[in-house]
Design a protein around this nucleic acid. Structure first.
Lengths: 148, 148
DNA sequence: CTGTGTGCAAATTATTTGCAACCCT
DNA sequence: AGGGTTGCAAATAATTTGCACACAG
């Protein structure tokens, strides 16, 4: 449930000495409700519907705080910075055509273990991105090929 | 050998109707010689040593061309855009402390196959980033803990 | 010649910072 | 009162674009 996540974020914010303001609630909800790994700008537009006076600076500052407490993750995909309401490592399917970023719910793979064993690198987390065409864009490509 | 790679890039550029200019050669060399997955700015500084008159705009334009012909890859790691002279998929070890990006030479894993089977996504390539501490920064952390 | 490439300067875009007013505790 | 928070405006960074000149094919 989204409300549980929101409540969890609120709790964590307060634990860490931050406040949970209406603006922050709206920002958290915008991120969690979006299927799209939204950019700061997109979050801003979304939240503006509820708080017309909110500023982009507030959005950025809040994103910084949410990253700090580990409740969201920052992604940079194709030069665009985006935010992910799920801070757990998982796989992202990145569509090269429509630029959608979809989560893959399957088990996270354990490859890094072997990588790290040999490299001397100490891993904290990893991020696997698969680039290609999402099902929708595959369909559109086919349609276009037929049509044109 | 680096010269072979440079020659290959030159060939590919011409095949695609682009010219291979001294500036472009210097840019390609700067990328290939760097162990560091350099940013545009870093490439610019490096090339400036040889061509003091080169402009950042030229660097950006050339990077665009090199991406277009598939001879380099663009990376965005922690909000910074960087360039990789190896366009083949491979693993990047990203140090959270010194921000170095190291290639991991091991076999590229085959996980994505299973991911794709179920998702309907058609993959072109994937990118695995492992975040953590490189061996050098691990050592420094230990030293600091002892010292301070 | 003709078109591509280069360098400069200006324009955009994205993100950060300084600061005064505000609100919660 | 005190400290975190907000919104605005200005400052920074990063990247792109327009344009005139240079140069290669």
């Amino acid at each position: 449930m989204l409300n549980e996540r929101v409540a969890a974020v609120a709790r964590r914010l307060r634990e860490r000495g931050y406040r949970f303001t209406p603006q922050r609630m709206a920002i958290v909800q915008a991120i969690l409700e979006s299927r799209n790994h939204p950019s700061a700008e997109e979050i801003y537009r979304q939240v503006s519907a509820v708080f017309p006076m909110i500023s982009l600076a507030t959005v950025y500052k809040t994103l910084e705080v949410l990253k700090d407490i580990g409740e969201i993750a920052e992604l940079s995909v194709g030069g665009r910075t985006r935010y992910d309401g799920n801070p757990q490592p998982h796989i992202h399917l990145v569509c090269e055509r429509c630029h959608s970023v979809t989560d893959w719910g399957g088990d996270m793979v354990s490859i890094p273990e072997e990588v790290l064993a040999a490299s001397g690198f100490r891993s904290r987390y990893f991020h696997l991105e698969v680039h290609g065409l999402c099902p929708r864009c595959q369909a559109e490509s086919r349609t276009e090929d037929d049509g044109a």
